[in-house]
Simulated assay, not measured.
Amino acid sequence: MDALARLPVSTLCDVDKSLPVVDPAIRPLTPSERVCGPAYTVVAAGEFLSVLWAIGEAQPGDVLVVQAGGAPLAALGELLATEAHRRRLGGIVVDGYVRDRAGLPPELPLWARGTVPVAGRSDVPPRVGGPIAFGGVRVNPGDIVISDADGIVIAPRAQLEACVPRAQEIEALEAEVLGATRRGDSLIDMTNLREHVAKLQAGEQSALAINPPS
């Protein structure tokens, strides 16, 4: 998990383009964008009791994945977010809305579609665990939630961990290429761009390649 947590989401998606990417309308509301931890699934449509219950039941490092429905009602606010941070949860991602943005703990990664001032209900039984739909992605408890400034991916742990070796190779290669470009070398000259385009125009198969200067 440590190796996975150090990799950019974009690089993981370069390795496996089938990784489920959450709706980009769900964005970070605190400065802490990075999430990497197991999903603790919650359904809180029009209410916040399920989120409060989940905060009390989840383990440190768990990421609450909250399907909050489409109503403009907040699934949590400053009080619940502060308790989640105190309990050392790995973060909260909400397919819906939250409130009290100014008071949200900056150290707690918290993503949502936006903010509204009105809280949901607290008089329905909590619904936690089980598969949910979240931002266009099917999420099962224990799936890994990983995010950074580019967005959120949620996938089975095995699928993500299979990406790690190749993603590390890509990161090393791109670091070399970026360093060379910053020193004044041409990025285009480090690629097979012209040959690649010529083959594509001729109807031949080709792949774009990048090779840093030796």
Rank of each mutant, 00 (worst) to 15 (best):
D2K: 12
A5M: 10
A5S: 15
A5Y: 00
R6D: 05
R6C: 04
R6V: 08
R6F: 04
L7I: 02
P8A: 06
V9G: 03
C13P: 08
D14Y: 09
D16N: 10
D16S: 13
P20R: 03
P20I: 03
V21M: 07
V21A: 09
V21F: 08
V22T: 14
D23E: 15
A25P: 12
I26G: 01
I26C: 02
I26P: 02
R27K: 14
L29C: 10
T30R: 11
P31I: 07
S32A: 15
S32P: 00
E33N: 12
R34Q: 03
R34H: 09
C36L: 05
G37W: 00
P38L: 04
Y40P: 01
V43F: 03
A45E: 11
A45G: 08
E47Q: 15
F48D: 13
L49I: 05
S50H: 03
V51D: 03
V51W: 00
L52Q: 09
L52V: 02
W53T: 05
W53H: 10
A54C: 02
I55M: 12
I55E: 05
G56S: 08
E57C: 14
E57N: 10
Q59Y: 05
Q59A: 01
P60A: 08
P60C: 13
G61T: 04
G61E: 01
G61A: 10
D62W: 02
V63L: 05
V63N: 07
L64K: 00
V65Q: 03
V66Q: 04
Q67F: 02
Q67D: 12
Q67N: 06
G70F: 03
P72K: 11
P72R: 05
L73N: 02
A74E: 00
A75H: 07
L76H: 03
G77Q: 09
G77F: 08
E78P: 02
E78F: 10
E78S: 14
L80H: 07
T82D: 11
A84P: 15
A84L: 10
A84Y: 06
A84R: 04
H85Q: 10
R86I: 03
R86Y: 11
R87Q: 13
R88Q: 10
G90Y: 04
I92E: 07
I92S: 01
D95M: 02
G96T: 12
Y97C: 12
V98T: 06
V98F: 04
R101E: 15
A102I: 14
G103Q: 15
L104V: 06
L104W: 13
P106H: 11
P106R: 14
E107R: 15
L108V: 05
L108R: 12
P109K: 07
P109V: 10
L110C: 06
L110Y: 11
W111H: 02
A112T: 06
R113I: 12
G114K: 06
G114Q: 08
T115V: 15
V116E: 09
P117Q: 11
P117A: 10
V118T: 15
A119G: 13
G120Q: 12
R121A: 15
S122M: 09
D123N: 13
P125M: 13
P125G: 03
P125F: 14
P126M: 14
R127D: 07
R127G: 00
V128H: 05
G129K: 04
G129E: 07
G129P: 13
G129D: 04
G130F: 08
P131I: 01
I132C: 03
A133S: 11
A133N: 11
F134C: 01
F134W: 00
G135Q: 00
G136K: 06
V137W: 09
V137S: 12
R138N: 10
R138D: 12
